[in-house]
Design a protein around this nucleic acid. Sequence first.
DNA 1: CCCGCACGCCTTTTT
DNA 2: GGCGTGCGGG
Length: 763
Amino acid sequence: MTIVGCSGPERDPYTAGMSLDHDFLLGDLTDAQREAVTHVDGAALVLAGPGSGKTRVITRRIAYLVSLGVPAWQILAVTFTNKAAGEMRDRVEHLLPVDLPGRRGLTVATFHGFCARLLRDHAAAAGVSPDYSIYDSGDQRTAMKQALERAGLDPSNWPPQSMLSQISQAKNALQSPDDFRAEADDFHARMVAKAYDAYQAILERNHAVDFDDLLRHCATLLRNDGQVRGELQNRFRYVLIDEYQDTNHAQFVMANAIAAAHGNLFVVGDPDQSIYAWRGADIRNILDFEEHHPGAITIPLGRNFRSTGHIVQAASSLISNNRRRKAKELTTELEEGAPIRVVRLADEHQEARHVVDRLKALSEDGVPWRGMAILYRVNALSRVLEDQLRREGVPYAIARGTAFYDRKEIKDAMAYLRMLANPADDVAFRRIVNTPARGIGGSTIKRVEAAAAASGRSLAEACGDESLLGEVATRSRKAVLGFAAIVAGWRQELAAGDSTGLGDLVSRVLRESGLERPEGAFESEDERQRQANLAELVSAAGDFVAPSMEETETGTVTLAIALREYLESVALVSDADAIDSGSGVVTLMTLHAAKGLEYHAIAMVGVEDGLLPHSRARDSELELEEERRLCFVGMTRAERELLVTSASIRTIRGMRQATIRSQFLEEIPDEHCERHDFGDSWGDDAGGGSEDGGYRVELEDDPGDGLADAFKAGTMVRHAQFGTGVVATFTPRGRVHSVVVDFKVVGRKTLVLEYAKLQRVQF
DNA sequence: CCCGCACGCCTTTTT
DNA sequence: GGCGTGCGGG
Ligand SMILES: Nc1ncnc2c1ncn2[C@@H]1O[C@H](COP(=O)(O)OP(=O)(O)OP(=O)(O)O)[C@@H](O)[C@H]1O
C-alpha cells in the first residue's frame, strides 16, 4: 500500500501517441501496470502478489483519469486505513499539475470513514439520528450487558463478547434483528436473536451505531433507496478499491451499488493476503469478481519491486502450501539479496536481545531506524521488545492508533464530548455524570433513569427537568440540577460557536467538569500525567481540521459539525494510522497492522506453534491457511533484510512453557535461509555478538544496577509528552526509581522511571 | 458513596 | 501476567 517511490518517473519525449502528461504518469510503469492504469471504462480486477505495485497502480490511475478530464470529485477511492488514504491523496496531488482544472474534491477514504459521512448526510433516509454516536468495543460491551439484562439472559451463560461477535457476523451479512430472528431455528440462535433485538433497541435509543452498523446501514440504504443510490452513482463515476481481498459482504454490496449504473469498478488485491476472514471478510468477493462483473478485464502483475530474491522465493514457497489457492508466479526485479535469517533463541528475553542487536548492527551499517519494523502475531509480545529497545536506547514506537484515547481520563473526557454532541447517548452520560464524583451515586441514577424511561426522555434531559426528580432525595436533586445547569451552558456554546472554537470548548468542558484540576502542590506523578494528557487532548482538538471545513468558502463550519467530525475521526482511527514515517523510529506492530506497508528490514518474532499459527486458529484447515497468509504478509513486508525468530521457552499468561516449532519455518526452503539455533544457549553469544552475555540475568536479579547505569546523570532521554531532556539525578525509591530530568522545553520534572517510559537518546 | 483488594478469566488478530 | 468484576471496609 506504499505509494509510488520518491524517484521521479522518467520522461521519454519520443513515445508516440502520448501527451507529456501521460508520459509523466505512465513512463516508469511496466506494460501490465500501464494497461491497468490506462483502463478507463468498465470493471477491472488487478490480481497480483505483494510488492507488485497494486497501490501504485490505483494512485496513478486516479491521476490518469483526472488528466483525461474526469473531475476528481467524481472519483471515489477506498483504502484500508486512514493513513493510506492520506498518503494516496497526497500522492495524487503531487502527480497532477497545480493548475489542472478539476483536480480538487477527490474522495479517498476507508469504508468506515466513507459510511460515517454518508450516514450523517442521509441520516433520515437511513433511519438514524444525524447526531449519532459511534460506539467502540467498550461501549458495545456496556450496551450488550444492558441488553442481556433486558432480555433476561444471564451473562455467565451468554458471554457478552460471544454474543457481540455473533451479532457482528450477522451485521456483516446485512441481517437485521428481524432477519436474524426469522432464520434462527435452534435454541441457541433464538437466544442470540433475542440479545440482538435488545442490543439494537439500546443502540437506537441512544442514537448510536457500532462499527458494523456503519457499514450495514449504508449498504442497506444503498440497496433499498433508489434516490440515494442514484445520487451516489451520479456523483461517483469511478470507484477504485485497494485490498479488495479483505472486503466483507456489506462492503461488496456498497461497491456494487455505486458502480451498478456505470460499471466503473476497479479493484486490486491479492487473495494470498486475505487475513480478515475472521471478521467477515469474504475472499469470494475477489475470486468471483469476473462472475459478478461479466466483461470485466483481469490484469495480473507478476513482478515484485519491493523485495530481494530470497525473500520473494521463500515467501512464495511458504504460501504454495495453501491448498485452496490459485498458483501465482512472482518474480523479483531486484537481485538475490541476503538470505532470510531464521534464528531460534532460548527464551523471549534472548529473542528480544537478538533482534535489537541485529537492528543496531543494521543501524551502524547506515539503515535508518524508520526503515525497520518488528512484527508479531499478538500484542502481548511487544512488551519484552519494548523493554529491550528502551534499555538499548533504540528509538521506537508502537503502532496503536487508539493508545492515547485508551487512557481512562481521556475516555472520560471523550464521553463528556460525546454526550454533548449526542444528548440521547445515555451510555456516555452515565459514564460521566458522577466522574469526577459530584454526589450523584448509583441509587440516584437509578431513580433518574426510571423517571427518564417513564417519560420517554434521555437521562440528560431528565436531569434538567425538576418535575421528573420527585423521587430523588433533596440533596442529590440539587447535585443533579447543578450538573444539568453546567451541561446546559456547554450546549449553548456548542450551538452558537464555529469550528475555530473547538479547542476552547474542550478546554471549558474539562475545566468546568472538574476533570482538569487546578495546579496542586502535592499531586502524584500519576495525577500529573493525567493532567498532561488532558492538556494534550485540548491541543489535539484545537489543531483538528474538520474535513468539511475544506469544502466551505470560509474554511469554517459550525462548532457542532466540527465536534461531530472530531469524535468521528477519533472513533475510526486504526492502528496503522499511528505510524509516523517521518519520525525516525523503529515501528512495532501486529502482522495485521503491517498489511500494505514495507520496510528495509523486518523482524518477525514469536514464530512458534501456538503463536503463528495461533493456537486458536489451528483446528480448521481454513484457519490454518489464513495463519499462513499472515506469515506470508509479514515476510513480504521486507525489502532487503528479513529476520524470523522463535524462542524455545516462552512465558505466556504467566506460564513458562517449552514451545513447539512452527510448521511455517519448515516450509521455508533451506536454500533461502541461514538458520541458527541458540535455543539452548543461555546468556552466551546467542545475543548475536554482544559481549556482556550475563547482562539480562544480572538485570533480573538486581534491576537497579542496569538502570542506574542506563539512566545515570547526564543521560539524554526522551519522554512522550515532555520531549527531550537530560537526567539530573537518579534515586532508587523502594521498588521503583525516581529520576529528575531537565527537559528542554518544559523544564525540570521528577518522574518515576518505571512509569514514565523514558527512552535514551543518543547524540 | 468511595476506594481497595482478591479472585477468576482470559485476547489472536480490528474497523 | 494483566485486567475487570464483585465484595467488604472506611
Ligand atoms: N514499475 C515500478 N518501478 C519501480 N518501482 C515500482 C514499480 N511499481 C511498484 N514499485 C514499487 O514497489 C513497491 C511496492 O508497490 P506497492 O506498494 O504499490 O505494491 P502492492 O502490490 O500494493 O503491495 P502489497 O500487496 O504488498 O501491499 C513500492 O515501493 C513501489 O514504489
